[in-house]
Amino acid sequence: MADMESSLQEAMQIEGAVGVALVDYTSGMALGALGSSKEMDLTIAAAGNTDVVRAKLRTLEMLKLKDTIEDILITLGVQYHVIRPLTSRNTQGLFLYLVLARSRANLAMARHKLKTIEEGLQM
């Protein structure tokens, strides 16, 4: 069974990963984060991306799409940001937030691995 620290460390092993956080999107707080730095303050990123997730969920609601978000991809010039809401009943309200360096990352592989980590967190 995965604890938070080992799940975050596993996420940092993903090719190209430069930062990861587990975020509570009801409060916008990072429950745990690795790879935070001066250039990339993950607590600020956590709070900001909470608004992204809320806005997207709200949009889905307004469109009356009976579906859930598997992940949200934001492509920057030099980074990918991947947001993955956790879905099981006992981890609802949390999302994983992964920052990847575009030059080193394999996006398909990263998404796949993030899915595995999510499953580990909510087993």
Binding site: M1, A2, D3, M4, S7, L22, D24, S27, M29, L31, G32, N90, T91, L94, L121, Q122, M123
Partner: peptide, 21 residues
Amino acid sequence: LVDAGLVTQAELESLGVIALH
């Protein structure tokens, strides 16, 4: 609670951090 399979370690840790703040 974790040993009894009622909550996961990660969930418990999350709740601990939430309650702390």
